[in-house]
Amino acid sequence: MVIKQNILGLGVILISLFTMMAPMKAQAEYGDVVINNYADAAEMRPAVFPHWFHRIRFNCSVCHADLGFKFGAGKNEITMAKIIEGEFCGACHNGEIAWSIENCDVCHSGISGTPTQVKGSPLRASNIAAPK
């Protein structure tokens, strides 16, 4: 029983390691999040949130505890109305902590049609499952 479980676990690891060997295309930065629940439909480019850039400046808890961002690409249902009310990105992008939201295309910088996703490890099954 224990051995069976181990074999199953190792199988998952091995399969995932093989998918890593598939030819790799140009790669976005690890942890970049594309947020596109509404942007495409509103004919805006999807928003791209760079984790690496923000984590140089802030601890995870600032966003994921103090500001209430849930873990999960697209899970927060961010809209511009909420942002101008000072929620989510608008808690900082308000002209005080960081530049304000007139700079539309600095956030809305993704290639149109890119679905909501996190550019995490290609080995993580939930990343593989995300539609291309």
Binding site: Q27, A28, E29, D105, H108, S109, G110, I111
Partner: peptide, 23 residues
């Protein structure tokens, strides 16, 4: 396979739109 190049500038990373001035 050879490793994909890492830490590419946004305009070349296949995620950001190079036609967007903000990129």
């Amino acid at each position: 396979k050879p490793q994909a190049p890492a830490n590419l500038p946004p305009a070349e990373d296949g995620l950001h739109d190079p036609d967007n001035p903000g990129t």
